[in-house]
Amino acid sequence: MKMSKTGLAVIFAAYVLVPLLLGSNSYVMSLIVAAMIIGGIALAWALLGNLGGMVSFGHSAFFGVGAYVSAILTMKAGVPVLAAMLLGGAGAVAASLAMLPVLRLKGPYFALAILAYAHIFKILATEWSSVTGGSAGLASVPRFPTLMGVDLSSKTGSYLIVLSLLLVFIAAYRLIRSSHYGIALRAMHDSEDATRVVGVNSTLLKALMLFVSAFMTGVIGAFNVHYINFLEPDYAFSGLWVTLPIVAAIFGGYRTILGPLVGAVTVYLVDQLVFKNLIPSGHQLVLGALLVAMIIFSPGGLMPLLRKGSRRKHAAA
């Protein structure tokens, strides 16, 4: 896979410069980590939307299941934190298995069915209190360990973990997109029936995309629980884990890989720093308005819009 020089420079800056320059300011670092968590879900959501052609309103289910699986495995079975994080992703995939019958449904049915599914897991987490701690939640979930002299539980350490996760996700996304599967998926986007006629098992491909997306979201959920060390159903399955990523992905452009990440950082920071101060309790109203405006004026997101603008500039020069 080719990697551009600017790409390498950005990665270098992210690994070295950001911790060096901002690492001492824990407020800024916590904002960045939170934005990257949203970015991770947004990327997973966009992967499902772009490659699988599915709009999901239920990603909070994957996020929450990943968090619970990882937290319970570390607390009750003594699994090491980093391994449990991956198992959290596997747990989210297992949860997505329950959604398979819905995959055969057309557009709006899928979106609403997955919305309904998300509710199921929240109720399960609340009611199955012997395992999940019920609505009181789980306190003192194990933190990240110290690895090779780096304290991963610190703000900077957690930042490095989530950064690595996002880079792996991006690489995986690119790999899928350029593989045979990616071609078939793109063809499916044009006409699912035609693709099936030439022998592509479209339901299987969609299922694979759902698994990948669920896995990513679950791992991010698991990362988050070890990062904040606390978990309760209302938080783990909060609608916020759906709303913010959708707004971020649509804002940045869900058909691109970097769009959702850029969107997440922009939307999250502006929301936290500006709107939350202006309207403390209903600041999501602005997010809803942004979503509506984006769908009407530029459903492809801001990134394509900017690119179009710069292309025009180049053409003029």
């Binding site: 709009v55 309103f57 709303t243 959708i246 707004v247 649509i250 999501q284 109203l285 997010l287 809803g288 308005a289 942004l290 979503l291 509506v292 769908i295 009407i296």
Partner: peptide, 8 residues
Amino acid sequence: ILTYGVGI
């Protein structure tokens, strides 16, 4: 997505 936004 639009009506989801209106709902929010």
